[in-house]
């Protein structure tokens, strides 16, 4: 009697679970209607490559995971106690072939994955310059509590929590931080994140291929104002960019040492701000300020 009951009471929840999973999938799909799934809609070369690489890895993983899991659950079903037709053999020998395959199969898969990963890790290293027709522009980024300061050394302008770049032009973000815990600079639509740390410069190369406004933020917790440490990254045409630069240049505000000192004070949820001029050696001084630690050099570990 128990056997029969057991069987039934076990099958029902499994069916319910599968049904529930399907329902959850549909529910999530519905909730996502009209929402932009950031990592699935890359707007730049780097984000695109990172997206493709991730999908490739997932595909390889599924090739091994799906059969493995299917086999496992199939065995669980087939060799259930109530199934009297299934053979029972406590003395199965698991010989050399078995041992060889359980080690060889995952090894082969991991070799495949590693051989995909190794060149990709080099090609998509944040420091790697992006090959493009346009001449790259440099933007210096300072993480502060809790806002992002962007300095355009070539244009000699500066902004807070807003960064504009021309489409199709590689951008070199030079990241550092001042009197701020480790922060992570991330514009998911354009590509992966990199840390901004005091006394240390990290270089992140990104490019935007499609015009638009993209959300950026600190991805690493750095204190009370962490959640509000967001910015907008706007990609526009070269012309739009030039006009914007001219617009900023006409701003009455100037990033002097005093203004910078004010910015250093912790503040949350800061609106965008624009400075028509930035003190020229400000960024370089930031690296010297902490020079005991890393001398501002860009080599790591």
């Amino acid at each position: 009697m128990t056997k029969h009951k057991n069987k039934r009471s076990q099958e029902k929840p499994v069916r319910l679970l599968l049904l529930g999973l399907a329902g959850l999938g549909v529910l999530i799909m519905m909730l996502l209607q009209g929402t932009d799934i950031t990592l699935f809609s890359p707007k730049g070369l780097i984000a695109g490559e990172e997206h493709r690489l991730t999908l490739l890895i997932v595909a390889v993983l599924l090739v091994i995971a799906v059969p493995t899991l299917s086999l496992l659950y199939f065995f669980a079903w087939k060799y259930r106690e109530s199934n009297e037709k299934a053979t029972y053999d406590d003395h199965t020998r698991h010989g050399n072939f078995f041992v060889f395959s359980v080690w060889a199969i995952p090894t082969v898969f991991m070799l495949v994955l590693a051989s995909i990963m190794w060149p990709a890790a080099h090609k998509l290293a944040p420091k790697m310059a992006i090959a493009a027709n346009a001449k790259p522009i440099t933007i210096q980024v300072v993480a502060m509590r809790w806002k992002w300061l962007f300095i355009y050394p070539e244009q000699n302008i500066a902004t807070i929590n807003f960064v504009q770049v021309p489409v199709g032009t590689p951008v070199q973000f030079e990241l550092t931080a001042d009197e701020t815990p480790m922060s992570s600079f991330w514009i998911p639509h354009l590509g992966g994140q990199l840390y901004a740390m005091t006394g240390h410069q990290n270089q992140l190369n990104l490019i935007a291929d499609v015009p638009g406004d993209y959300a950026g933020r600190s991805a690493e917790i750095n204190g009370a104002g962490f959640a509000g440490m967001t910015f907008v990254a706007r990609a526009s045409s070269q012309q739009g960019f030039d006009e914007w630069v001219q617009g900023v240049k006409s701003s009455p505000d100037v990033l002097t040492a005093d203004v910078y000192g004010e910015l250093l004070k912790p503040s949350q949820n800061n609106p965008a701000a624009f400075y028509s001029q930035a003190q020229p050696d400000l960024y370089a001084n930031l690296l010297i300020k902490y020079s005991g630690s890393h001398g501002g050099h860009t080599e790591h570990e």
């Binding site: 990963m117 890790a121 944040p126 992966g192």
Partner: peptide, 17 residues
């Protein structure tokens, strides 16, 4: 599987944190 994805540095740049 999620762990292996995160072990790929370029994928991790997007998924970390």
């Amino acid at each position: 599987m999620a762990g292996v994805i995160l072990a790929v540095p370029p994928a991790d740049f997007q998924l970390h944190n």
